[in-house]
Design a protein around this nucleic acid. Structure first.
Lengths: 138, 138
DNA sequence: GTTGTTGCAAAGAATTTGCAACATA
DNA sequence: TATGTTGCAAATTCTTTGCAACAAC
């Protein structure tokens, strides 16, 4: 029994701990990159996990709504990734799709300044960096 | 004959200046906000412009590929907006969808610092602020 | 036992493609 | 006139929904 029981997130989200949902959560825990519902479903099926595409979609959507996942809108589709904190930014490797979280105090400062100067009430912001990680540059 | 002839962009992109493409470009010039192919098509048709949805999609895609438009991936669909410079950031009003461009020297500095610290070769970044503009707050 | 969950099949929405008619250079 | 462009209809792709069988609490 390890810390951070696999179904804590589900309980917290008011979702029943079904085999399928646990499977999805486990898969997400092992990836540093963001996945698509389609891709995740295919991988799980290939790994022998019996789970329907619909369920993958529903599980990812529920977890994202409960703020357990980050949602990335790639062209045409959306990718999901486990996230700890509510607020953070990302460093994304465009080659392997790995996503690292980054702190951004500087950005927050800049956001507030700009918004105030232009008369906006801030409701959110995003600041992501795209690049090629050290491993992929080898 | 005004400066910045409406079809300069098309010429530059190696595209023929057809009535439809000029119509799309004109429409884009009048909007400070990003539009969806579907929405733009509907508006043009309602305005009596004979143009097909397929053509709107193709025109927007071509212009975006030629860097004349910015592409915003909203959930499920993508919105386009005319852009002058290759690089800039945005202040987006979530109520009226207006998009203002903002300078972000501070952000550029932050981007380079973070990337270097983590061993990434920067290929791009994005920094947008979402909020409610002064007009919409009245 | 209740009530939430699953997953198939079908519906939907956004976008792309085949192809014959047509406009631009 | 030669080649790029249009637009309809049909095909694709991602995502959602209806609903009956089923699993969690």
């Amino acid at each position: 029994m390890k810390t951070g029981a696999p179904d804590d997130a589900l309980r917290d989200a008011g979702l029943r701990a079904t085999r399928q949902r646990l499977t999805v959560l486990d898969a997400l825990r092992e990836r540093p990159d963001a996945v698509t519902a389609q891709d995740l479903h295919m991988e799980l099926r290939q790994a022998g996990e019996p789970i329907g595409l619909t369920t993958v979609y529903r599980t990812l959507t529920s977890l994202a709504e409960a703020s357990f996942l980050d949602v990335f809108n790639r062209e045409g589709e959306q990718a999901f990734r486990l996230c700890g904190d509510i607020h953070h930014h990302h460093l994304v490797c465009e080659t392997c799709n790995k996503v690292e979280e980054i702190a951004a105090a500087e950005v927050e400062r800049w956001v507030n300044e700009v918004a105030e100067r232009r008369g906006y009430e801030v409701t959110g912001h995003r600041a992501d960096i795209f690049g090629i990680c050290a491993d992929c540059r080898l």
